[in-house]
Simulated scan of single mutants.
Amino acid sequence: MKTGINVPNVTFRTRVRDESIEGSNPFRWEDKTSDDFFKGKRVVLFSLPGAFTPTCSTYQLPGFEQNFETFKSHGIDAIYCLSVNDSFVMNKWKEMQGVENIDVIPDGSGEFTRRMGMLVAKDNLGFGARSWRYAAIVNDGKIEAWFEEPGICDNHGEDPYGVSSPENLLEYLNEKAKSVAAE
C-alpha cells in the first residue's frame, strides 16, 4: 500500500538523558528529524495506539525487543516504536518495560502519523487522535515493506493485531532472504 514512498520529513520533540544535568530528572529537550531516524539505515518502524496499552505492552513491544538480534541478522540497523504520545510517556513506558534495544519515537502532535495517513480518532476509548497499528521496513527513508492492520477507521471497536507483529515481519525477511539466495 505505501511501499516505495518516502516517510514524511518531520521534527520530533524528544527528551534525552544528559549526565551533565543534576537532580532526579537528568533529561534535556532534543529535536530529531525523520532523517536522524531513517537516513542511511534499514530499520523497522512499528506504530501503535498508545504506550501502556495492553496489546502494545504485552505483545508488540516485547516481541520486537525479544527478536532484536534476529532482526539484526537480516540487515536491520535499528527498531523504532512510534506512538502519538509525548516523550515523557514514551520514555517512561520504555523504562518500565525494561526495553534496551528498541528506540521510541514520540509523535506527540501526531504530525508524522497524520502525514503517513494513519491518524485515527479513538474517542470511543477516550484517547483522542492516535495511530492505527502498523509496521514497516524502511530503507534509507523509503518504505520497503508495509504491514497494516485491517479495518482502519475512526473509533474502531477492536484493536486488531497480527499483521504488524514481529513474527510477521520476520516471516517477510526470511522469505526475502530465501528469494535473494535463490537468485
Score class of each variant (00 low, 15 high):
residue 59 Y to I: 11
residue 146 W to Y: 11
residue 70 T to H: 01
residue 129 A to P: 12
residue 148 E to R: 03
residue 18 D to Y: 06
residue 124 N to C: 11
residue 181 A to T: 07
residue 80 Y to E: 12
residue 140 D to H: 07
residue 46 F to N: 01
residue 7 V to H: 07
residue 108 G to C: 02
residue 119 L to K: 09
residue 116 M to F: 06
residue 131 S to E: 11
residue 61 L to V: 15
residue 176 K to V: 11
residue 69 E to F: 04
residue 21 I to N: 10
residue 144 E to C: 03
residue 155 N to F: 06
residue 94 K to H: 14
residue 168 N to C: 02
residue 65 E to K: 00
residue 92 K to N: 13
residue 23 G to R: 09
residue 126 G to E: 08
residue 162 G to H: 02
residue 179 S to P: 00
residue 62 P to F: 00
residue 45 L to F: 07
residue 182 A to I: 13
residue 49 P to R: 12
residue 54 P to L: 07
residue 20 S to G: 09
residue 7 V to M: 10
residue 178 K to F: 06
residue 86 D to G: 09
residue 89 V to C: 08
residue 67 N to Y: 02
residue 157 G to T: 10
residue 24 S to E: 12
residue 100 E to H: 11
residue 134 Y to H: 13
residue 29 W to C: 14
residue 126 G to L: 14
residue 85 N to C: 09
residue 40 G to V: 07
residue 168 N to F: 01
residue 123 D to H: 08
residue 50 G to Q: 04
residue 16 V to N: 04
residue 43 V to C: 15
residue 23 G to S: 04
residue 82 L to W: 01
residue 173 L to Q: 04
residue 177 A to Q: 14
residue 101 N to K: 11
residue 13 R to E: 15
residue 151 G to I: 01
residue 175 E to C: 02
residue 33 T to V: 09
residue 77 D to Y: 10
residue 126 G to C: 11
residue 70 T to K: 12
residue 1 M to H: 14
residue 140 D to S: 07
residue 171 E to C: 04
residue 78 A to E: 15
residue 13 R to T: 14
residue 5 I to L: 14
residue 130 R to W: 08
residue 167 E to D: 15
residue 84 V to P: 12
residue 63 G to S: 00
residue 48 L to H: 15
residue 140 D to P: 08
residue 62 P to A: 05
residue 28 R to S: 12
residue 158 E to A: 13
residue 168 N to M: 02
residue 161 Y to S: 03
residue 121 A to C: 09
residue 136 A to Q: 12
residue 123 D to S: 11
residue 136 A to Y: 14
residue 80 Y to H: 13
residue 166 P to N: 10
residue 41 K to T: 06
residue 179 S to T: 15
residue 102 I to S: 02
residue 60 Q to M: 09
residue 14 T to V: 11
residue 61 L to K: 02
residue 109 S to Q: 09
residue 28 R to P: 08
residue 108 G to E: 05
residue 55 T to D: 02
residue 12 F to I: 06
residue 127 F to A: 15
residue 151 G to W: 03
residue 82 L to Y: 05
residue 91 N to F: 11
residue 89 V to F: 09
residue 65 E to H: 00
residue 162 G to D: 01
residue 66 Q to V: 00
residue 177 A to F: 06
residue 172 Y to I: 15
residue 46 F to T: 00
residue 58 T to H: 10
residue 164 S to K: 02
residue 177 A to L: 05
residue 59 Y to P: 03
residue 35 D to C: 04
residue 18 D to M: 04
residue 171 E to F: 06
residue 128 G to L: 01
residue 17 R to N: 09
residue 78 A to I: 08
residue 4 G to C: 14
residue 103 D to E: 14
residue 24 S to T: 13
residue 79 I to V: 12
residue 1 M to T: 12
residue 135 A to T: 05
residue 76 I to M: 04
residue 119 L to Y: 06
residue 116 M to S: 12
residue 57 S to H: 03
residue 169 L to K: 04
residue 164 S to N: 08
residue 141 G to A: 01
residue 25 N to H: 08
residue 118 M to C: 10
residue 170 L to E: 00
residue 23 G to T: 05
residue 177 A to G: 10
residue 73 S to P: 07
residue 77 D to K: 09
